[in-house]
Design a protein around this nucleic acid. Structure first.
Length: 372
DNA sequence: CGCACTTTTCCTGCTT
DNA sequence: CAAGCAGGAAAAGTGC
């Protein structure tokens, strides 16, 4: 899997950039050969380096097969511009292809539609399509988005503050009113980690009250709260607090209508994605990717430790489109696994867990078998 | 629609 | 004191 190496670079850079200040005691963690944001993009083998500023291409980060017609048009326009084709020579009105249809096109057909640009399109399409390994697609998708977000100024805020790139991503997504976001790269991927990352689509609903979570979260007014009119949300927020106490239990998220509006109308509901323990496992079994997030304490026994607990929580939150995820909440979910014997308790050791008899896929022999 | 399942959110109390 | 752990409670989101 040639792409793994590239992803590794991206992942390394991603985490060293995003989370490097979280735990000073981890200074020994190799900060990964420093790549700039540009390298992030280059490593992905995509042509988006030509994109400048904060504008985000709608097709970016999605598998070409999953592009909508609008995304196809967007991409073709971009390619035309990139290769200095006179837009006047290309009749985009004839382009009625969605991503799947585009990918089925032979070079001649593309040439027929787009003239000499067709050849360029064909080769770029090939590059793009092959740059999505299914096993690690969820990581890819996160990184695609965040590599763009990283190009935004980070300011002085800590890595998990409200103004994090995650929030930027949400802002971008909302600003664009992007076309249907079909999301999944799970092209027959056997790993649960390949399941959908981008279809949950409720992230925007989370952000305004990210500060309302438990634990030690800083209570700030989210800067993007003005994006979401209050009436778009059911009674769920600080306004709902009665006499300083909120109702127990999980607050409501966006109504279906609001969500569909925000995500540009998505037909199907989100398939159940990766389970938390699988997400954790996937990070652990790709040591080249996890860059100091977690480590094995005892691989044979399945004992592992969170090194950057909040970073892992943020990543999990990102996967679930939930910007208010914290280690506090993640750990609660982890504790539920004790009863089901997916995890076992490791007494007296903070941030240390152990895979239980009902977990799988983490043992060395299993991992090797899976990769071959 | 109802139910089961898996989180997510919040909370109180305890431990390190 | 802060961070983490434990686990109850309730609700959300999803699949069937």
């Amino acid at each position: 899997m040639a792409a793994t190496c590239e992803i590794s670079n991206v992942f390394s850079n991603y985490f060293s950039t995003m989370y490097s200040s979280e735990d000073p005691t981890l200074a020994s963690v190799p900060p990964a050969p420093t790549f700039g944001a540009d390298d992030l993009v280059l490593a992905l083998g995509s042509p988006q380096m030509a994109l400048e500023g904060t504008e985000k291409a709608s097709w970016l980060g999605e598998q070409p097969q999953l592009w909508s017609k609008a995304q196809v048009l967007d991409w073709v326009s971009y390619q035309a511009e990139k290769h200095k084709y006179d837009p006047g020579t290309i009749d985009l009105s004839r382009c009625e292809l969605d991503g799947a249809a585009l990918c089925r096109c032979a070079p001649e057909e593309l040439r027929l539609l787009f003239g000499p640009l067709g050849d360029q399109l064909y080769s770029q399409l090939w590059d793009l399509s092959s740059s999505f390994p299914d096993e690690l697609s969820w990581i890819m998708e996160l990184l695609e988005k965040d590599s763009l977000a990283l190009q935004e100024p980070l300011g002085e805020q800590g890595p998990f503050d409200q103004g994090s790139p995650f929030t930027q991503e949400i802002l971008e997504d909302c600003r664009q009113a992007s076309p249907p976001y079909t999301g999944s790269f799970g092209v027959g991927a056997p790993s649960p980690g390949s399941s959908d990352v981008s279809t949950a689509g409720t992230g925007a609903s989370q952000s305004p009250h990210a500060s309302d979570s438990g634990g030690s979260d800083v209570d700030l007014d989210a800067p993007d709260s003005k994006l979401f009119p209050r009436d778009g949300f059911p009674d769920y927020k600080k306004g709902d607090l009665k006499h300083g106490k909120r109702k127990r239990g999980r607050p409501r998220k966006l109504s279906k209508e609001s969500r569909e509006c925000l995500e540009g109308r998505k037909s199907k509901h989100t398939p159940r994605g990766t389970h938390l323990w699988e997400f954790i496992r996937d990070i652990l079994i790709h040591p080249e990717l996890n860059e100091g997030l977690m480590k094995w304490e005892n691989r044979q026994e399945g004992i592992f430790k969170f090194l950057r607990s909040e970073a892992v929580a943020q990543l999990w939150g990102q996967k679930k489109k939930n910007s208010s995820m914290t280690y506090e909440k993640l750990s609660r979910a982890m504790r539920y696994y004790y009863k089901r014997e997916i995890l076992e308790r490791v007494d007296g050791r903070r941030l240390v867990y152990k895979f239980g008899r009902n977990s799988s896929g983490w043992k060395e022999e299993e991992v090797v078998g899976h990769r071959n």
